[in-house]
Design a protein around this nucleic acid. Structure first.
Lengths: 253, 253
DNA sequence: ACACATATAATCAAAAATGAGCATAAAAAA
DNA sequence: TTTTTTATGCTCATTTTTGATTATATGTGT
């Protein structure tokens, strides 16, 4: 067995088990640990794995799951631009609804410039952002508090939305697709979003390009239930075209 | 398991449970606490979590400044003592309701020691305090957000309380008097408090001595609607006696 | 305010893993 | 064949990881 064969075999083992061990590899190939280490060193230099003491792990597993705060900085520029564009749809005197999410949080920040608004939200972060702005009345829906996102969901939230009507709902999503509509990973959240759409005169979907064409688990609306889609220019144009053909006003920033 | 795998696993646990414990992690991975602490320290330096005594919690960019709560340091010691006494009335597995106010905020802090509770509140501060405690489900009522107190009031709040029943309501007040019952300066708040009393099996009034014998503007309950009164020892004994004669269990700390 | 229990940081020691240097053997080139 | 190159193995000083210990810090209850 040549060195190159061995290295690709190591990568195969790594892909299968998510980790490899110097000792195990040494026994497996009946070679000294020195040789294995040399192999691993080369493979690491080629960015094909991540060395550890005792072995190696997959390169991607090093990139820790993005936490809430990390997600926030991802595409921050695009999200702020989307928020700015969304704010243009709002006029003083209106009542609007803000879903929870990073982009809607940026939209809340944009709202500070308005002098007369009624803002309903299920996001404690958005509510907190607007709580001391004169002229803006902040209504929080009730519900069960999700600690990860500081969003309120569940029956109490849905019931709150049953009691109100707003001019415009600004909704975030984890996936938007022509066939599968709007989807999110969480069933309860999906149910809450459904209500947020139902109680609004106009529905504006605000989402960055990574969600365009994506499908998540729980569907909460058909594509034709929304009136506007605001996203950034990195979105797949083909998908955007098909969405526009469905009668939705698409705005790209 | 390599160090890097372990750290990744710690982050996963953290994302799932919102908090991790040094001892638990030590047992879980069968490693010394020293090693766990080293891991947590590294992860904190990478801004992936926030260390606490005994463990770590999720890193959150936005923390609610309890600035306003600090201002109200008046009788802080007494209020904390009242909160401690109030906590003794609570047992794991119960559903309780927390009014907004300084004393109830201290009570929320006491609740962190419980392992199984359903907590309903109209105070964003209380909700925030308990949001990442394992075993505690936090429900926020809906409502209009009062920026001064971060409390939720109004029709939406009242309607939320119509939909729920709790074992115990912990209510704050601006005045308690045998003839005039419980009173507060704000009509809307009074209406909300009324509902918070109606939806509870037992009502516990927690208030420092300055409110005993006081009468404010809007009445929200008769004295006999409450079951317990917890206050501090500086309260006028004569008033306390008359309250006790009305059949209320009075506890002085 | 005090004592008590628990948690922590700092330090040291031990075990395991590593890298560097050198020797050897096989393969390739001259 | 001889020389050169390459791959491998071995030894040992160094580094990394971990656990144990202890003084210090923190929090809790009286």
């Amino acid at each position: 067995m040549y060195g190159i064969e061995r290295k690709s075999a190591i990568l195969e083992l790594l892909n299968k088990n998510a980790r490899v061990d110097v000792q195990e590899l040494s026994q497996h190939f009946d070679l000294s640990e020195s040789t294995i280490r040399r192999d691993l060193k080369e493979l690491e230099e080629a960015q094909l794995l991540k060395r550890t003491h005792g072995g190696a792990v997959l390169f991607k597993s090093v990139t820790f799951e993005p936490t809430y705060i990390e997600k926030e900085v991802q595409f921050q520029k695009e999200k702020r631009a989307i928020a700015k564009e969304a704010a243009k749809l709002i006029e003083n005197g209106e009542s609007i609804l803000l879903d929870s999410g990073t982009t809607t949080y940026y939209l809340a920040q944009e709202l500070r410039n308005f002098s007369s608004l009624q803002v309903v939200t299920n996001s404690i972060l958005c509510a907190n952002e607007l709580k001391d702005v004169t002229g803006i009345e902040v209504l929080l829906c009730g519900g069960s508090l999700r600690s990860e996102t500081l969003a309120l969901v569940g029956p109490l939230a849905e019931n709150s939305f049953n009691q109100i009507c707003v001019d415009k709902s600004f909704i975030a999503t984890n996936g938007v697709d022509v066939e599968n509509g709007l989807t999110t990973p969480n069933l309860i959240e999906a149910s809450t979003k459904k209500k947020m759409i139902d109680c609004a005169e106009k529905v504006i979907l605000i989402t960055d390009h990574t969600k365009i064409g994506q499908v998540s688990f729980a569907k909460f609306a058909d594509i034709h239930e929304i009136n506007y889609l605001i996203t950034d220019s990195a979105a797949q144009q083909t998908v955007l075209n098909r969405i526009e053909e469905s009668g939705i006003s698409v705005r790209v920033v």
